[in-house]
């Protein structure tokens, strides 16, 4: 039942995974703080939130949801592939995941710059002339999607390291804790988005 490593030994898979799960809990609570703020203002300004959400492009939002869901599947499949010993396929699937993440970011980039063109960004004059509810909605929109996008970037870096490791063989059918944990992290990025998507895009 117990494991005894010395001061810097290799970490076994159950231990590493439990550590990752606990880290994911802290991530959930990090976003949880923002969800709490959202809930409070949404209850206070629900009509204005509806109007503001109308400004968002639900099509782009849906597309991004699809990207993330598919990428979640590909990263889960890459784990299956590495468990079965198919390193080539695993690497290919991780690369597809990174590509989908990149598409998500490109979409996000266009979405944000589009808003900027209309002068909708934190502290802008346009925003200040809007009602309080709309202003807070966009504040939350930028905080939440910004923090989420940061996590997407971190996830992309983690996955890229995995590509290198799979290629060099240090992630293989016997040692795949790194890929397993990166996949868990990537699923978390997906989880957060699953909540963000209806709360920001679908309340029109």
């Amino acid at each position: 039942m117990s494991v005894h490593n010395t001061h810097a030994e290799h970490i076994d898979s159950e231990t590493g995974k439990l550590g990752m799960w606990i880290f994911l809990f802290t991530e959930l609570f990090l976003f949880g703080g923002l969800f709490l703020v959202y809930a409070v203002f949404r209850a206070k300004y629900s009509a204005e939130f509806h109007i503001a959400a109308g400004e968002l492009n639900a099509f782009i939002g849906t597309m991004n949801t699809v990207f993330l869901l598919v990428s979640s599947m590909t990263v889960a499949m890459s784990l299956t592939a590495i468990q079965k010993g198919d390193r080539k396929l695993a690497m290919f699937l991780v690369l597809v995941t990174i590509l989908l993440a990149a598409l998500f970011m490109v979409n996000k980039y266009f979405e944000w710059t589009h808003k900027f063109e209309y002068g909708i960004y934190p502290g802008s004059e346009v925003l200040k002339n809007m009602s309080h509810g709309e202003l807070l909605f966009f504040g939350l929109y930028y905080m939440m999607t910004g923090l989420h996008a940061l996590h997407v970037l971190v996830g992309m870096v983690l996955l890229s390291i995995n590509v290198v490791r799979i290629k060099s063989g240090s992630v293989n059918s016997n040692h795949y804790l790194m890929l397993e944990n990166s996949a868990l992290y990537w699923h978390l990025v997906d989880l957060i988005w699953i909540f963000l998507f209806p709360l920001l895009y679908l309340i029109t």
């Binding site: 979640s72 599947m73 990263v75 889960a76 996949a183 868990l184 699923h187 997906d190 989880l191 699953i194 909540f195």
Partner: peptide, 11 residues
């Protein structure tokens, strides 16, 4: 429901 699906299956 979606989150539970991801947690149970993908994760």
């Amino acid at each position: 429901v979606k989150v539970a699906t991801v947690l149970i299956n993908f994760m």
